[in-house]
Computed example of a mutant assay.
Amino acid sequence: MKHPATPPPDASTLPAQWQRLHELDGEPLPQEPTLLHGWALFHAGHFEEAELAGLAVGLSGLSLANRAAATRATLLVPSEKARLDLFQRIHARGRAHAAEDQNNPNAWFWLAYALIRYSQGIHVARALAQGLGTQIRAALEKTLQLAPHHAYAHLALGGFHAAVIGKVGPLVGAMTYGARAEEAMIHLREALRLAPDSAAVMVEYADALVAMEGEPRLAEAVRLYEQASNVTARDAVEQLWVELAQAGLAL
């Protein structure tokens, strides 16, 4: 993996960069030195070590542990089975986190994110049949109730609407699962407004457009991928999204 254009933060420089690095998840700056060090590991790309550091802290470290594991599962792990196992682990931890800290938006968000990625792995239609769609939507709506400006939750909820419509069509999607194209676009646009220079938002926005509408949105999706491929990565995590966009354009 290439290093980002700017040096990754360490525990001493991370607080000054925190807000920009966390425009997606809105995670509050931790006060515990051990947890701050764990987040520095995460932003430097040491995801397994960051996950372990988060788990070692306990409840307040679960957002770190889950984001580190989710990043690795989404962007680095090649095995589908290993990815699904990771997402199941994240979901279980997210449920426990939400039960213990019900007013923590990221407890609900990582629970939902894990279910979304797990659903993609077992195919969305099968996941919907198992009732996972209702759980995903409820957890994302809870996230946004607690944190209305949570860019990642808007992105995920928009993507959820788009994926359902893409799999079952707009009529069944709306009547059975409450998935609507206009709702997808409201959330996707809000994510882009909240994090306009995020490579992750650009890539996920593009994928949602294609999932929902296919060929008519392909040119717009390509433009978003091009923009994402030229982002100056602020940390090792974003560098992975930039490289994903570059790889997508090369196909």
Rank of each mutant, 00 (worst) to 15 (best):
G133R: 07
H187S: 14
A247G: 13
H161V: 04
L52Q: 14
H91N: 10
N230S: 13
K142P: 02
G166T: 06
M1C: 14
V201K: 04
V210N: 02
I90Y: 06
V168N: 05
H22F: 12
L128N: 02
V164H: 06
E226P: 05
L249A: 02
A250V: 12
E141F: 03
V57Y: 02
A16W: 10
G214R: 15
S229N: 04
T13K: 04
E100K: 14
A56R: 13
L140S: 01
G94D: 02
A82H: 07
L171S: 08
S63T: 12
Q239C: 03
I90G: 05
D197L: 10
E27L: 15
L62M: 07
A127V: 03
L41A: 11
H154I: 05
G58Y: 12
L36M: 14
A200Q: 12
A92L: 09
K167G: 03
T176S: 13
E204K: 11
N104W: 03
Q227W: 11
L115P: 03
G169Q: 03
Q227M: 10
D197N: 12
T6K: 11
L14G: 03
R137I: 01
L146F: 00
T176E: 12
T74G: 04
P28Q: 00
S119V: 07
G94H: 05
K81P: 06
L240W: 06
Y113E: 13
A236N: 08
A247R: 15
L249Y: 14
V231Q: 11
S79F: 07
Q227I: 05
G131N: 02
L52V: 05
D197W: 03
G169W: 00
L249I: 13
G166V: 07
G45Q: 03
A221S: 14
A163N: 07
K167L: 11
V231K: 11
A153C: 06
P33C: 05
A162G: 09
A236Q: 09
E51G: 02
Q239S: 04
S60Y: 02
E213V: 09
M202H: 08
G166C: 04
L171M: 09
Q239D: 00
L144P: 01
Q88D: 11
I165M: 04
G54K: 03
A228H: 10
A195P: 06
P33H: 10
Y177W: 15
R20T: 15
L146I: 00
A211K: 15
L64W: 07
L240P: 01
T34M: 09
H149Q: 12
A53P: 06
I136E: 02
W108A: 08
A174I: 01
L115N: 09
E183D: 15
F87L: 11
T34S: 15
V231L: 09
P7G: 10
D235V: 02
G214D: 00
K81T: 14
W108G: 01
K2F: 15
F47L: 15
R234G: 06
A200N: 08
A138N: 10
G131L: 01
Q145F: 04
M185P: 07
A199I: 06
H3L: 13
L36P: 00
A68C: 07
A99G: 09
V57N: 00
E32Y: 00
T74I: 07
L29A: 11
D207K: 12
A44Q: 12
P33D: 07
L192R: 15
P170N: 01
A211L: 15
Y152C: 05
D85N: 13
H154M: 06
Y205Q: 06
P78E: 11
A50N: 04
P30Q: 01
P148W: 01
Q239K: 09
E182N: 15
L188H: 08
